[in-house]
Simulated assay, not measured.
Amino acid sequence: MNDDLKKRLSPIQYEVTQRNGTEPPFQNEYWNNKQEGIYVDIISGEPLFSSIDKYDSGCGWPSFTKPLGDDLIVEKADVSHFMIRTEVRSKKSDSHLGHVFNDGPPPTNLRYCINSASLNFIAKEKLVEEGYGEYLELFK
């Protein structure tokens, strides 16, 4: 599977999802995306986050107050880089997504700081066409 992923993903997507890397802030695909839609795991296609829960945290990466469901992600302690953080991984593909911090806005006070390279964005207008029609209800 690793060779397949190396062929399928860009170098930064592979580095982020498979090697726990981080893309540069403010220089990634979705940090400033304002379109309505959902963000899915680039490996499995599993829906993870919604634009409804996205906000501008000023950190340079897409930030969300919550995932679409608590059963979609796994949180793990991360003590790398001389810090104590909580890593966020996709439950289905076990891909590194980013980190969650407790400095977000109400009501959750959480900031899911997620690498664009770990995500695909499905615009609201394409949800049915791309097989995610059940999420269209979120935007009504």
Score class of each variant (00 low, 15 high):
residue 12 I to F: 09
residue 14 Y to M: 08
residue 16 V to Q: 10
residue 21 G to W: 09
residue 22 T to E: 00
residue 24 P to H: 01
residue 25 P to L: 01
residue 26 F to A: 12
residue 28 N to Q: 01
residue 28 N to K: 07
residue 30 Y to K: 08
residue 32 N to L: 09
residue 34 K to T: 05
residue 36 E to I: 00
residue 36 E to H: 06
residue 38 I to P: 02
residue 39 Y to K: 03
residue 39 Y to I: 08
residue 40 V to T: 11
residue 40 V to L: 03
residue 41 D to E: 12
residue 43 I to S: 02
residue 44 S to V: 04
residue 45 G to W: 13
residue 46 E to Q: 11
residue 47 P to K: 02
residue 48 L to R: 12
residue 50 S to Q: 03
residue 51 S to E: 01
residue 51 S to I: 01
residue 54 K to S: 00
residue 54 K to V: 00
residue 55 Y to P: 14
residue 58 G to H: 13
residue 59 C to K: 07
residue 59 C to L: 12
residue 59 C to Q: 08
residue 67 P to K: 14
residue 67 P to S: 15
residue 68 L to H: 14
residue 70 D to E: 05
residue 71 D to Y: 04
residue 71 D to R: 03
residue 74 V to P: 04
residue 74 V to G: 04
residue 75 E to Y: 03
residue 76 K to M: 06
residue 77 A to K: 15
residue 78 D to H: 08
residue 80 S to K: 12
residue 82 F to A: 08
residue 82 F to P: 00
residue 85 R to D: 12
residue 85 R to H: 13
residue 85 R to P: 02
residue 87 E to N: 10
residue 87 E to K: 10
residue 89 R to P: 02
residue 90 S to E: 07
residue 91 K to M: 08
residue 91 K to T: 12
residue 91 K to A: 14
residue 93 S to R: 06
residue 98 G to A: 02
residue 99 H to G: 13
residue 100 V to A: 09
residue 100 V to R: 00
residue 101 F to M: 09
residue 103 D to E: 02
residue 104 G to W: 03
residue 105 P to S: 08
residue 105 P to Q: 04
residue 105 P to F: 02
residue 106 P to Q: 07
residue 107 P to D: 04
residue 109 N to K: 02
residue 110 L to M: 15
residue 113 C to T: 01
residue 114 I to W: 07
residue 119 L to N: 14
residue 120 N to Q: 15
residue 122 I to T: 13
residue 123 A to Q: 07
residue 123 A to P: 15
residue 125 E to R: 15
residue 126 K to M: 11
residue 127 L to D: 06
residue 128 V to L: 02
residue 128 V to S: 13
residue 129 E to D: 13
residue 130 E to C: 09
residue 130 E to M: 03
residue 132 Y to A: 10
residue 132 Y to V: 01
